[in-house]
Design a protein around this nucleic acid. Structure first.
Lengths: 205, 205
DNA sequence: ACCTGAACACCGTTCAAGT
DNA sequence: ACCTGAACACCGTTCAAGT
């Protein structure tokens, strides 16, 4: 088991607003450009080859030295979560937009389904989801705080047990994503079924 | 993402009986000895370093050429599941012994808890549990058939929904094990709580 | 039949030299 | 301040030569 060095939190800077969430302050123009190229390349490569694709390949496709990759993203997880960040932001936004118009536990269920689908966007992302969601990236933060808010709301409405923690739900999502690896219609059905079953268990009675 | 070659099913021979489950037929004495040394070494190394420890290290500690390791176990999963086999056998036996004297869903719950604990015996085994349980090793087979039997019994007793598949339960176990990584008293408590919650969702209503 | 280990291809990570 | 890529250490896998 390889042990990654501790995540460099300096890499995860607070973003000014959901619309403008690129950390351009304190980055030289060329550095900023390289960072963007790296993210685009990472998204491509991870999508094609899975979450443990070669980082060399990412650097090559970004037309950037491998050292530059490490300078920007000291660990694989840092790159992984940065590459997912847009998606996570979108997920949190979508949930916030629709949450108030539907019942608490329904909102929570939809959120978890989306999260499970997100974890399936790269092969191998699901297993890393727990780590990725704790990496401090803005998108991660948006997602976890939205999830936590939904959970608390459902608990206040007495629709969900009090002894359920957000981490339990992340754990469920991990499981469901692992089980639903691939994203055909069959997997999607299974995903929804598993989320529903777990939510039945989580529901207050 | 590394793609492993397809698992060589010739490696997983049917065993004569639960008590004597070492494939000694068709193996020369020295080969048999090497196989045993490899399994003992693998158990040690995986326990110390996790499920993705170096296979070189395993061969070295078994005092065997690396080629011999690959001859006996063509994939990491093959070695992993062979090394777990005793444990899985014991798990199935224990469950069989106690199952008839307790209610169906209780027996199933205990079985799943044990399986989750098993998945925690090596760091990183949980994520591979789905694959390991499908590798055809005798211990895997004993475990899956016992689990399937317990599930069917609980379904006949109308204690568990009909639309639950054994794979769903394996998926749960994976999740719970991932969430309960580590094996302190806190993790064990969490493990039992998560299993209980999922079982509530799985329960017929 | 089976074992051995050198050889090959590949990957992650660092760091001295460059701009 | 940032980039580069050669260099190093390590790992998985194969296969020709040996018993």
């Amino acid at each position: 088991m390889r042990s990654y060095p501790p995540f460099d939190t300096a890499m995860a800077k607070a973003r000014p607003a959901p619309q403008d969430h690129t950390p351009d302050r304190g980055l030289r123009a060329d550095a900023r450009r390289n960072r963007d190229k790296l993210l685009a390349a990472a998204d491509e490569v991870f999508t094609e080859q899975g979450a443990d694709a070669s980082l060399d390949e990412v650097a090559r496709r970004a037309e950037v030295g491998i050292g530059t990759l490490y300078r920007h993203f000291p660990t694989r997880e840092a790159l992984l979560s940065a590459a997912c960040d847009e998606r996570l932001f979108a997920l949190a936004d979508k949930s916030r937009a629709q949450a108030d118009s539907i019942p608490a536990s329904e909102a929570l269920t939809r959120f978890l389904e989306d999260l499970a689908r997100h974890a399936g966007s790269y092969r191998g992302l699901a297993a890393a989801l727990g780590v990725v969601l704790k990496c401090g990236t803005p998108g991660c933060h948006a997602t976890t705080s939205q999830g936590q808010a939904l959970l608390e709301r459902a608990q206040r409405a007495r629709e969900v047990r009090r002894d359920v923690a957000f981490d339990d739900l992340v754990c469920l999502t991990t499981a469901v994503s692992l089980a639903a690896a691939g994203s055909g219609p069959q997997e999607t059905r299974r995903l929804r079924r598993l989320v529903a079953m777990f939510m039945d268990g989580v529901r207050a009675r």
